[in-house]
Design a protein around this nucleic acid. Structure first.
Lengths: 151, 151
DNA sequence: CAAATTAACCCACATTTACCCACAATTCCC
DNA sequence: GGGAATTGTGGGTAAATGTGGGTTAATTTG
C-alpha cells in the first residue's frame, strides 16, 4: 500500500496537493474519499482511505465506554476525524483545527505508512526522525517478531 | 543473488546507472521495479527488488502500532521506502530526501548484499570499512553459529 | 434579512519530471 | 591494435504535475 516520504507545501488556503503517484490508488480504492484525524501520541495527523477508517472506527466504538482510557481514545480519535475529498486538482483542504493541532504552516511532510498516511510539519518530522535515529535498536523492548526480522 | 562492490557516479539529476551485470536479473526478477529505503543503523540506503520489499513491509505492518519501538521502525523504514524503476538506460533516479539522508553527492558505492543492495557515499563507505577492519575479531561477542562457521 | 466570510470549483500558468535520443568511453573480440 | 558492440553520460523536449488565484455558491454572523 502506501509508503515513502513526500515534502509538500501548503498553499495560502491550507490545501495540500496529493503526490500524483498516490492519486490513482486513492481514486480507485475510495473514490478520493479520505478521513483525517489526529495522532494521539505525536503532534501529527493520520489520513485514512474512508473504508479503512470505518473499520477502525467500528473497532474503537465497540470497546467499553466505561473504561476511561477507551473513552479518551474515542473522544480524541473519533472526535477529530474529518471527512475530506480530493478536489479536481488532486488536493485536500486540511481543516484549520487539525492544522493547528499538528502545527502545520507551509512546509509539511506526507509519510506513507501502509494502510494510512501521516502528515507532519517538516520541522517536527525532521526533529522526530533525528531522535529515532539516535535511539539504538536496543533489542530489549522489541517484540520477538522484530528481533528475528532479517532485512 | 547480488554481490560485489561497484563504484558509481551520480549524474547532475541524481540518477545512478545500475551496473550492466545486474540488469538482466533485476528485469527478470521484478520487471525493473525496486524499492529504496534507509538503513536505520548507518547512513546508507537499502535497495530491494519489489517482491522482496513487500514481504518485509507486510511483516513490519502486522506488528502492533501501540508499541513505540514498532512505531519507530515503521516510520523509519516504511516511511522512507520509495518505489523506483529503471529507465530505458538502466538508471535509477534516487529521490532527494534519500540522497540527503545518505549524504550522496557524486561518488557512491553500490554494495551487493544477497537479497538487496546497499548504497553508500564513497567517503562514508571507505571510512566505515576501515573501522570494521580495525576492530579485532575478538570472538567473545560472536553468536555461536558464527564461531562454528568455516570459511 | 443582508452582508461578509468561508469553502468549493474551475481555469491558467510555471515548474518539474519522465522519457527519449545522441554521443563518449570503455570493453571485448577478432 | 583496430573495430564493433556494449555501457556510461549528458542533456533536450513534451507531458504531467504543482501552484496560484478568481468566481460562484454556501454558510454564518450581525
Amino acid at each position: 500500500m502506501f509508503r515513502g516520504v513526500n515534502p509538500i507545501n501548503l498553499d495560502a488556503k491550507g490545501r495540500m496537493a496529493i503526490p500524483a503517484r498516490y492519486r490513482d490508488t486513492i481514486t480507485e480504492y475510495c473514490c478520493g474519499q479520505l478521513v483525517a484525524t489526529i495522532d494521539t501520541e505525536e503532534r501529527c495527523l493520520l489520513l485514512y482511505p474512508l473504508a479503512e477508517w470505518e473499520e477502525i472506527q467500528a473497532k474503537i466504538q465497540a470497546l467499553s465506554s466505561f473504561n476511561p482510557a477507551v473513552r479518551r481514545i474515542q473522544r480524541l480519535l473519533i472526535g477529530h476525524a474529518t471527512d475530506l475529498d480530493m478536489d479536481g486538482n488532486g488536493r485536500l483542504l486540511l481543516p484549520a483545527p487539525l492544522r493547528e493541532y499538528a502545527e502545520l504552516s507551509k512546509k509539511i511532510v506526507l509519510l506513507g505508512q501502509g494502510n494510512k498516511f501521516e502528515i507532519w510539519s517538516e520541522d517536527r518530522w525532521l526533529a522526530t526522525r533525528e531522535e529515532y535515529l539516535a535511539e539504538a535498536d536496543g533489542g530489549a523492548e522489541l517484540p520477538e517478531e522484530l528481533k528475528n526480522l532479517s532485512l
